[in-house]
Amino acid sequence: MAVYVPNPYLPEIGTVTEVIPETPNIKTIRVLLRDPERMKNFNFRPGQVAQLSVFGVGEATFVINSPPTCKDYLQFSVMKVGEVTNRIHQLVPGDIIGVRGPLGNGFPYEMMEGKDILFIAGGIGMAPLRTLLLFMLENKNNYGEISLIYGARTPQDMCYRYEIPVWQKRGVNVVLTVDTEAPGWTHRVGFVPTVLSEEAPSPKDRIAIVCGPPIMIKFVLFGLRELGFEDWQIYTTLEKRMKCGIGICGRCNMGEKFVCLDGPVFSMEELQSMVPEL
């Protein structure tokens, strides 16, 4: 009985160090854990998530979108949709925030080594992909060509706009698109699935990683299959209402799988074997 068991519900206390407004309803926050030891040892895989808490309001799940090698802060991008996210949007540098994580599985980047990588993102769906993208750029020799198709409703709804030139400089082949024409916009216009079929990347030795709103994912999948991508070549990361984040409280299940514990990253092949309850 004297065995020490860590309390998986107890958050680490962190401090908000920076708040970056991304779009009218998305903010990126950077958090430093108060305990330097914990900050140093906060190891995670790209794609893993954490529960952010504002005590008095509650917790919500966000993907950690800073690269794992970054020990200066943990970064999260938060879209204002509910009670907790509203409160997070009010935070300013110096404010306290709880962090519980890392949780979930993360991307299986090992099996992606040696392959070309195609990121396809829509709106806030860029957040989970950012970590993996940066991770792959840090380990560029292990991967082939890295390309990104990123779409948003309007140019103002595009996250990390300030970083995209840096990614391009580091060798990412970037295609940007917005839903409708906008003044000053020099990139593509059209929905992500359309741009995908225009770009028509070859499925040969390529892994596609998709994240965005459900409707986009649905049509992107259709497009990828048209192009000859097989289910094992396609990865996505799911969202569900979560509470505990550790596979106990029950609500995020799809059949026998828990999105919080067994996911949030799934290959299309895995998803095909799961009950369709998205």
């Binding site: 509650g58 569900k240 029950g250 609500r251």
Partner: peptide
């Protein structure tokens, strides 16, 4: 199955675990 909610009272409060039901609309 349970839910977790914060129940504040001024500057203090508790993080509460309470029964929840998969029969409820709000659950998911």
């Amino acid at each position: 199955c349970f839910t977790i909610t914060d129940e504040p009272q001024g500057l203090r409060g508790e993080r509460l675990r309470s029964w929840d039901s998969c029969m409820f609309y709000q659950y998911t």
